[in-house]
Design a binder for these strands. Structure first.
Length: 196
DNA sequence: AAGATGATTGCCT
DNA sequence: GGCAATCATCTTA
C-alpha cells in the first residue's frame, strides 16, 4: 500500500487490508477520507495544533485522537504538510480473537471492532500511540481480501461538508457501523445494497 | 480559568 | 430514533 498518495485515493484501497497491533488483527471494512486544509470536516482544516500535529507528518503513521472519552485512529497519507488522513471506522477481527474479547466483554464477535472507538479499544490503541509509524511497536498494515462490493456515501456524524461522499465500506460486512444514518449514494461492482 | 464543541457509544422509548 | 454520559482540546476572557 502506497501511503504517499492523498487519503481520497488510498481510502477505498484500504478496505480488506489487515491492521495488526498488540496481538489483535482486524480486516478493515469501513473508512473515511479527510483532506486537510481543503476539507472543513477535517481536524486539520484550521491548521496545525498540538492535537493534530501527527496528521501533518508524511504518510505511513497513525493519528490518534480522543473524543467523548473514546480513542479514534487515522492512517496518515500523502506528503508531509498535506494533513490528509483516512479515519478507520470499523473492522472484522481476524486474529487475536480472545484478546479482543477480553478488551470488549459481552459484545458479539461481529461487533468487536464496529465503530472507530470500539475498533481502537479492540486493538488496544490509545492517544498515547499517536504518531506511531508502521513498522514500529508491532504496528503493521498487511494486504488482505478486498470486498466483493464497495459502497460509497457521506461521512458519519460530521457537521460540515456532510455531502461529500468520502466514506467507503464493504457492502457485505456486518461490522460496518451506523449505516442507517446515511444512505449509499453509489455502489461497487455487484451493486450491493449497503444499509440494512 | 471557564465554557463550548465534537470524525462516539450505549441505553431508553 | 432520541438523548445522556463523559472528556480532551480549543476558544475566549
Amino acid at each position: 500500500m502506497d501511503l504517499g498518495r492523498r487519503a481520497l485515493d488510498v481510502a477505498p484501497e484500504l478496505l480488506g487490508c489487515v491492521l495488526r497491533f498488540r496481538g489483535v488483527a482486524v480486516r478493515l471494512v469501513e473508512v473515511e477520507a479527510y483532506e486537510g486544509a481543503e476539507d472543513p470536516a477535517s481536524h486539520a482544516w484550521r491548521g496545525k495544533t498540538a492535537r493534530n500535529a501527527s496528521m501533518f507528518d508524511a504518510g505511513g503513521r497513525i493519528y490518534v485522537y480522543t473524543m467523548h472519552g473514546h480513542a479514534c485512529m487515522n492512517i496518515v497519507c500523502g506528503p508531509e504538510g498535506l494533513a490528509s488522513a483516512v479515519l478507520v471506522r470499523a473492522g472484522e477481527v481476524v486474529e487475536g480473537l480472545a484478546e479482543a474479547r477480553s478488551r470488549r466483554p459481552r459484545v458479539r464477535d461481529d461487533w468487536l471492532a464496529r465503530g472507530p472507538g470500539n475498533l481502537c479499544r479492540s486493538l488496544g490503541i490509545t492517544r498515547a500511540d499517536d504518531g506511531t509509524e508502521f513498522g514500529d511497536s508491532g504496528l503493521e498494515l498487511l494486504p488482505g481480501t478486498p470486498p466483493d462490493a464497495v459502497a460509497v456515501g457521506p461521512r458519519v456524524n460530521v457537521s460540515r461538508a456532510w455531502d461529500r461522499p468520502w466514506r467507503f465500506w464493504d457492502a457485505a460486512s456486518p461490522a460496518v457501523s451506523a449505516a442507517k444514518r446515511h444512505p449509499a449514494v453509489r455502489a461497487g461492482s455487484t451493486g450491493g445494497q449497503a444499509s440494512g
